[in-house]
């Protein structure tokens, strides 16, 4: 299972990668904004996306909307500090499958990933 992590914070990417490896997912690809996320996605083999919202160049919302025009079924989890109800609804309407507000526990990330992978 290859997972794409898109976040402009290298610390955050590292924390997510660390959590993923603890729950058995070590095949990870990284992007630091929506644009580089799309480039990594185009290389193929990605089965799940974990993305931040607030990033330079292309934010997570635009990234998700673009991904959905190409791939309607890939599971997408948004992990962000945006906690307002309207933000969560906007993300879901854009094609995000589930939502985690930072800071999170590894248990929450695990729970969301497992529910997305069914």
């Amino acid at each position: 299972m290859k997972i794409l992590i898109v976040d402009d914070s290298s610390t955050m990417r590292r924390i997510i990668i660390n959590t993923l490896s603890r729950i058995g997912y070590s095949d990870v690809v990284e992007g630091d904004n929506g644009k580089s996320g799309l480039e990594k996605l185009a290389q193929g083999g990605i089965e799940m996306i974990i993305t931040d919202w607030n990033m330079p160049e292309m934010d997570g919302l635009e990234f998700v909307q673009t991904v959905r025009t190409q791939n309607p079924s890939i599971p997408i989890l948004m992990v962000t500090t945006n906690a307002a109800k309207e933000d969560i609804v906007q993300a879901l309407q854009s094609g995000v499958n589930n939502y985690v507000v930072k800071p999170f526990t590894p248990e929450t990330l695990k729970e969301k990933i497992e529910s997305l992978l069914g």
């Binding site: 607030n54 990033m55 330079p56 945006n82 933000d87």
Partner: peptide, 13 residues
């Protein structure tokens, strides 16, 4: 251009 900002960031603990 800079990254967009969460409108709730000041309340994030």
């Amino acid at each position: 251009e800079r990254a967009s900002i969460s409108r709730t960031i000041q309340n994030t603990g």
